[in-house]
Design a protein around this nucleic acid. Structure first.
Lengths: 236, 236
DNA sequence: CATAAAGCATGATGAATATCATAGAAGGCC
DNA sequence: GGCCTTCTATGATATTCATCATGCTTTATG
């Protein structure tokens, strides 16, 4: 982790339009600039660990982060992936908890850190920021409820198909038409909630069935409809 | 479902102190009385169905409600249990979604219905209610993240042990020392995320091992420490 | 109260999935 | 470039768990 100078103000941030700070009055957005600190993280570096007390929130300017829990056997379970414009770590801070999860970077990632005091000031102030966070938390809660039902009821194959689609929706494709995130087989496994070997087998099966193409760490979707059908996903 | 007259105002509600309307200025609480409608639901009756658009929120004055999703095979997955003082249905309303889940009463339940317009007025107003809902959603989100990890990593036995403890914390014990909620084996199964038969077997095993006592629909905890250990729960 | 319906219980069986073992491939590093 | 480590792949095996089948018990309902 390396502290880096502020390159630009939040008002000019390219990811703001898709962040939670969208639709917030400009003068309030400018408040953020005052206290924020910019950091650069390398792949594998950690924003925060499960169990720590939150000191602020992280706004991802560029990069990708996995948020995961460590189970009792030490196995990881990824609960969310975040990218450009996402605010990470707000749940624990605003819920008054310790971090439930660890956040680790999947690639070189640049973040703006907004200290606790400042965020709370803005949230408790006359701003509509509390409202925005509330809506955001409610939406994440709806997604979590879906994930719970899927984990409890779907097979590994079905979950794998769905996860591939969700990850694609999250990060899109790169120039080569591959899903634009580099995940190891173990990481795919902890997204799906299965063993690494099972994950590898299912991915190979999918390739043989013409659903996907495996290109090293990257996955290219070949048959979107097939995946939708297999994952029993009703396209939203 | 039966409409019933307002028995008392929110300010005098016995469950307010533990609800989200706690710590809200009294004059704002009194606003709720204006538009609220009280209903009485019988066991099995439904507050709202998955897929509907929310028209308001339900505040449980007395009773117990299960919130569940129906999986693609039609099997239910209970994602939460709610009781006295809990506000049900806020997630979809405030998240701007349709209901992700269905809410059904486990026993005779009395609720106050607060219409959408009125709740939104209060939330968007100068009140700290948005803040309270935000905190609440963040806390539920933390719990959901735990549930996801447990479902993905723990065995049915371990999850069963944990669920028994969680349900006891939620509803406490009745005069006979049994967990104070009447759940069928099928409902326990859909809390744990397993088949009814597996659930029955594990419960019988637990009884044989001296962990619990099965008394019809009710469960009495015999060996709390044993359950904690089995469920790999770190007592909070 | 009688009868049906729902819920509970237990055994047998098979499918899904985790675990263990091993080997080759790829990637990072001096 | 060569070596070591990590990642990927695949087979063999064990375990967990769901499903099906059947009988008993409790609970609703006329």
């Amino acid at each position: 982790m390396k502290k880096v100078p502020q390159l630009h103000r939040c008002a000019e941030c390219s990811t703001r339009y898709k962040s939670i700070f969208n639709q917030i009055p400009l003068d309030e957005v400018e408040q953020v600039d005052v206290g924020k600190v910019c950091y650069s993280f390398k792949r594998g570096e950690v924003l925060f660990y499960e169990g720590q007390m939150p000191q602020g929130v992280y706004c991802i300017e560029k990069g990708k982060v996995k948020i995961f829990n460590t189970g009792s056997e030490g196995r990881d379970q990824i609960v969310r992936l975040s990218g450009n414009g996402d605010v990470v770590g707000y749940r624990a801070l605003l819920g008054g908890d310790r971090y439930e999860s660890t956040a680790s970077c999947l690639e070189e990632t640049e973040v703006c850190f907004i200290p606790k005091k400042q965020l709370l000031n803005m949230v408790t102030g006359q701003s509509c920021l509390a409202m925005r966070f509330m809506q955001h938390a409610c939406q994440e809660l709806g997604q979590a409820s879906k994930i719970i039902t899927n984990l409890a009821q779907k097979t590994v194959r079905e979950r794998m198909a769905e996860v591939i689609l969700v990850v694609q929706e999250t990060f899109g494709d790169n120039e080569e038409g591959q899903i634009d995130v580099r995940l190891s087989r173990e990481e795919w496994a902890s997204l799906v909630g299965t063993a690494t070997e099972s994950c590898i087998r299912v991915l190979s099966d999918f390739q043989q069935e013409g659903l996907i193409l495996l290109q090293g760490k990257f996955i290219k979707i070949q048959d979107r409809k097939g995946l939708l059908k297999l994952g029993k996903v009703t396209e939203s």
